[in-house]
Design a protein around this nucleic acid. Structure first.
Lengths: 113, 113
DNA sequence: TGCATATATTATTATATTATTATATAAGCG
DNA sequence: CGCTTATATAATAATATAATAATATATGCA
């Protein structure tokens, strides 16, 4: 059972436009840093920093191909999360059935008083 | 199609232990602020700030019950995200089949030169 | 061996997030 | 109406994150 702190950390690491783009591209296959530099609007050191962060946190890894570092996805949670972010939700969740205004249902909270 | 900036914003808002706890509790049903104060290790103003943020971003909403504000989940993406965070993944993703070291497969990146 | 290429690291600055403290609002009750 | 309860807002201070600029490392090739 993951702690809430851990859950928050996971989301926090992914929650950056450049890192999301990196992960989305790695979903499609292996990429080296210069591939990213073509598609991502960020400086080389900046991309490198994002890659480093994702790697230290275990989301991605790389192998060496000559002087290229070829990155690939490691964490299976990533595609699942990206998929949810892609999904278009049409409706809001149903409003609670226990609205005290209409006096229908019961309010579930334990309230002091 | 959501932009990457938007995707990052969504994750960033959720990516906080207290906000995750709020959302997890709202998954189970409506709660008023004083319910949260019992379960969450944070001051009343702090909880209120997190609730305000989640509300301004459209993840939750509330109805009034006398002087209580009863919060409930609105955004259907939230339970999906929380579910992924709960999931235990046993294995890493399969390592790429196109490793140039073994000379099997082809490296998919468009590389200059 | 020395140069060019590919990528990383470090330091710095700018900006955003967070918790805390103090104060405000708003509703119901006596 | 004034008090109490429930909750929010605002100001501040502490901390974390991010981008930039400058520099370093490491590999292959001539």
């Amino acid at each position: 059972m993951r702690s809430r702190i851990k859950k928050a950390e996971i989301l926090k690491i992914i929650a950056h436009p450049v890192r999301i783009q990196i992960l989305e591209e790695l979903e499609k296959g292996v990429k080296c840093v210069s591939d990213f530099e073509e598609s991502i609007e960020a400086s080389q050191p900046n991309v490198s920093q994002h890659l480093g962060l994702l790697r230290r946190c275990g989301f991605i890894d790389y192998y060496m191909d000559g002087r290229l570092r070829c990155y690939f996805l490691v964490d299976p949670m990533v595609p699942d999360l990206l998929k949810i972010l892609r999904k278009e939700y049409k409706d809001s969740l149903p409003a609670p059935a226990c609205c005290p205004v209409t006096k229908k249902g019961t309010y579930p909270g334990n309230r002091r008083r």
